[in-house]
């Protein structure tokens, strides 16, 4: 696979074109997994751990890129490796430096790389209810706005709306539906009682 510069990878991950994002993710998967795999397998992990932690690490890295928290001059492969390493260290209840040599990415905050992709109980029910009630169009609008963090104009272009106002109205309706599902959920009610 042809080597890509870090700037190109970050630009692709930020792109509104899905194929650009897919291409960058495939590239990162291909070039980075072996290094992460060696580290986890050397430190009491198995192949399933490698898959789980590398996937979550890649998701965390993607989120950081979308939130503009990655400097364009960052060494992408090293940063991704550090995220996975820190996640695995946390799982082993060890400091990252106890596992590997020091590097400049130990400043990554744990909360920034905390990924919750295994859902249980009320939380799982809530997500399932949202996906059921919201509809595909709303799901896409909200994902593009809050997850992909695209600007309104980019979403208008991507979803072929007539103008910003049409999108604003649609988004407002989608948020009302989402709000209602959340308010009705046991998950939310339990959150209130915990306070």
């Amino acid at each position: 696979m042809e080597k890509r510069s870090d700037k190109v990878i970050i630009k692709q991950l930020k792109s509104i074109e899905e194929k650009e994002v897919d291409s960058a993710l495939t590239y990162l998967y291909t070039v980075s997994k072996k290094t992460v795999s060696r580290f986890i397998l050397r430190n009491k992990g198995n192949q399933q751990d490698v898959d789980d932690f590398f996937h979550d690490g890649l998701i965390a890295f993607y989120n950081l890129v979308k939130q503009d928290k990655i400097n364009p001059d960052t060494n992408v492969e090293a940063y991704l490796y550090s995220i996975c390493r820190n996640m695995w260290a946390k799982k082993l209840m060890k400091k990252p430096n106890d596992l590997e040599l020091n590097d400049s990415f130990n400043v990554i905050k744990t909360e920034e790389i905390q990924i919750d992709t295994i859902l249980k109980g009320e939380r799982k029910n809530l997500i399932e209810q949202i996906l059921k009630d919201l509809g595909k169009e709303c799901e896409k609008i909200l994902l593009l706005f809050y997850y992909e963090q695209l600007k309104m104009k980019e979403i208008v272009q991507k979803m072929h709306y007539a103008n910003d106002q049409v999108l604003r109205n649609k988004k407002s309706k989608c948020m009302k539906s989402l709000r209602q599902v959340v308010l009705d959920s046991t998950f939310y009610k339990n959150q209130l009682t915990q306070k």
Partner: peptide
């Protein structure tokens, strides 16, 4: 508070969909 919970759920859905995408990439690679 409610807005944070709403956005948190949207982000979780985004992460779940990204995870599916990565699993497909894994299969292909």
């Amino acid at each position: 508070q409610i807005r944070q919970i709403m956005i948190e759920q949207v982000k979780t859905i985004g992460n779940l969909q990204l995870k599916d995408k990565i699993l497909n990439i894994q299969k292909n690679v």
